[in-house]
Amino acid sequence: MAITFLSLEELNWLLEKIGVHYSLNELESLVGKRTLDYNQFLFFWGSISKRNSSSSSGNGSDHEQENDDDQTGVVDDVDEEADLAKAFNVFDMNGDGFITSEELQNVLSRLGLWDEKSGKDCKRMICAYDTNLDGVLDFEEFKNMMLQTSS
């Protein structure tokens, strides 16, 4: 199986689709390289989700956030959920509330992360996180997948 990489331009396109805006220079500074493989992309997504959640929850220090856990934790959870919902909608191309292996393949293809030889990988990725075994990912399954890969 050939390893496919995601360019910063493609990453920037995806981020803009979910409402996250960076310049290419900022992205290169954050990522530290010009391309990402699939695992690096998932790691980056997890870190960018956390960064956006924490930056929007206030500009206080870590100490202040520890003392304000009740309020900040709720804001972080809401922001994280909103970010995940935006990402989910990118993959749920027909808007039916589920991500099929075909939709996943389509998005990964547009991002340059899928080729003919890896077609079965999309089904395997869906099956790996499909807890109710219906062959598709609903939002909760997608959220669990993204939170698991980012920790």
Rank of each mutant, 00 (worst) to 15 (best):
F91W: 07
S53G: 15
N106G: 08
Q71C: 03
L108F: 14
H21C: 05
L104D: 13
V74F: 08
N12A: 12
D68Q: 13
D70V: 04
D69V: 08
W45R: 04
Y38T: 13
S101I: 02
D115M: 04
N25F: 02
H21D: 08
F142W: 12
S56K: 13
E116D: 14
T149K: 09
D121C: 02
L36I: 15
M145D: 11
N89T: 13
D70Y: 02
A82T: 06
M145H: 10
G73K: 10
G58Y: 00
L84Y: 04
G95M: 14
G32V: 04
L11I: 13
K86S: 14
S53K: 06
G32S: 04
G32D: 06
E66W: 04
E64C: 06
L147S: 12
E140Q: 15
D76I: 11
T35L: 01
K120H: 12
H63K: 11
D83L: 13
K117F: 02
Q105L: 07
Q105K: 05
N25T: 09
R110W: 10
E66C: 03
D68K: 13
G97I: 12
L84N: 03
G135V: 00
G97T: 11
E66S: 02
G97S: 12
L42R: 01
D83R: 08
V20R: 03
W45E: 07
F98K: 07
H63S: 14
D37Y: 01
T35Y: 08
E16N: 04
D62R: 11
Y129H: 07
G112D: 04
M146E: 01
D134T: 08
G112M: 02
V107G: 09
R34P: 04
S47F: 00
L113P: 10
Y38S: 07
K86W: 00
D92A: 11
V74L: 14
L27E: 14
N94W: 08
N59L: 06
L111V: 10
V78H: 10
E28D: 05
C127R: 07
D62N: 10
E26T: 12
C122I: 01
V74M: 09
D96A: 06
I126S: 11
I48K: 01
L113W: 08
G97E: 14
D121Y: 05
M1C: 06
F91D: 11
V31T: 14
W13K: 04
E102L: 12
D79P: 00
N89D: 15
K120Q: 12
E81W: 02
